[in-house]
């Protein structure tokens, strides 16, 4: 694909200054996203998925030190953009939805008014028109009786309904990029599918790009064109869904896939990968998987290569698994 990517991230690095020293949360994180594409971002808890998303949205607090060789969204350089410029990108260019939708909504403002807030933040729109548009938006995410629900507060709605409101909110600004951070975690299986279908439907209508952060590989496989696998602040492997699910080459991805049996299992339920994430406050080896890796050799102490297996498939490892093996 030679399309200009919507999002272009090269060597993103994030460190947090904390009382116990620097937390090296992200290092050499690189990925691109083109228009209409859905990328799954997967990895164990604490691997840096949310931090990557927040870094792109520039929503990290002041304790975060963010650097990158390139960080471009919709043609705007996020590194040099002022706070006001980034703020003007949010909503319109890129937006985000969160895991706990109820907590992510203003508890004392009616859901309709919250949608109106987003609508009017991005387009000059008379109040009455915005009101109508908000009811339409609620109907579009298939909230029953939207006229009445306009006046509902988050605490009156179920978790699934709140997530629908979040989606309506995110799409109200007609963004080009949606980052969904575990949008279905905590919802029951039926609702999960409904929410995912809704996201897919709405994003394909508008040729929107989506980053789907999730623990649920089986669910993600169904909705994503591409995957990036994270471990301890590195993207260890990325490729198309078939690359990752059938031709995994990084030992971590391999173990992940082996550990994922048929049927639905979530990463968080898997204890199959031995060891745990390294302490990100320490000096870290080039390959952060080295202490857990069954494949490791002395050569692994050298700086990590980035091996391009083909146009879409890339792995950061000295000893990648080969198909023939």
């Amino acid at each position: 694909m030679t399309q200009v990517p919507i999002l272009d991230i090269r060597n993103l690095k994030v460190d947090f200054a904390t009382r116990d020293g620097m937390v090296h949360a992200l290092e050499s994180v690189s990925f691109q996203l083109v228009r209409g594409e859905t990328m799954g971002l997967v990895g164990e808890s604490g691997s840096g998925k949310s931090v990557s998303a927040y870094a792109v949205m520039r929503l990290l607090g002041s304790s975060a030190h963010v650097t990158a060789d390139r960080m471009v969204c919709g043609g705007v350089d996020l590194r040099s953009a002022s706070d006001a410029e980034v703020a003007s990108l949010r909503g319109k260019r890129m937006t985000m939805i969160f895991q706990n939708a109820r907590a992510a909504l203003n508890p004392i403002r009616s859901i309709g008014d919250q949608i109106v807030d987003v609508l009017r933040a991005h387009r000059a729109m008379p109040k009455r028109e915005a009101h109508e548009a908000a009811i339409m938006a609620l109907a579009e995410v298939r909230i029953p009786d939207p006229k009445r629900r306009y006046h509902a507060y988050p605490f009156e709605l179920s978790g699934g309904m709140c997530q629908r409101v979040m989606i309506a909110l995110a799409f109200a600004s007609e963004p080009e990029l949606l980052i969904a951070d575990e949008p279905t975690t905590g919802l029951d299986v039926t609702t999960q599918a409904v929410i995912m279908d809704l996201i897919r439907e709405k994003s394909s209508q508008r040729q929107m790009s989506t980053i789907l952060i999730t623990h649920d590989l089986t669910l993600a496989a169904e909705y994503c064109d591409r995957f990036a696998v994270m471990h301890a602040g590195h993207i260890v492997e990325q490729g198309t869904t078939t690359d990752i699910f059938q031709r995994a080459t990084h030992p971590y991805t391999g173990l992940l896939m082996q550990a994922t049996p048929h049927g639905a299992t979530t990463l968080s339920e898997l204890a199959a990968i031995p060891g745990s994430l390294p302490d990100l406050r320490r000096e870290l080896p080039p390959c952060r998987f080295v202490h857990r890796c069954p494949q490791s050799t002395p050569a692994c102490a050298a700086p990590l290569p980035r091996v391009k297996l083909d146009a879409s498939h890339e792995v950061a490892c000295h000893m990648p698994w080969r198909e023939s093996e």
């Binding site: 949205m57 949010r90 992510a104």
Partner: peptide, 13 residues
Amino acid sequence: SEFITTARAEGLP
């Protein structure tokens, strides 16, 4: 709190 993060992510003034 989280809903402030949301409000920022949605691009509210």
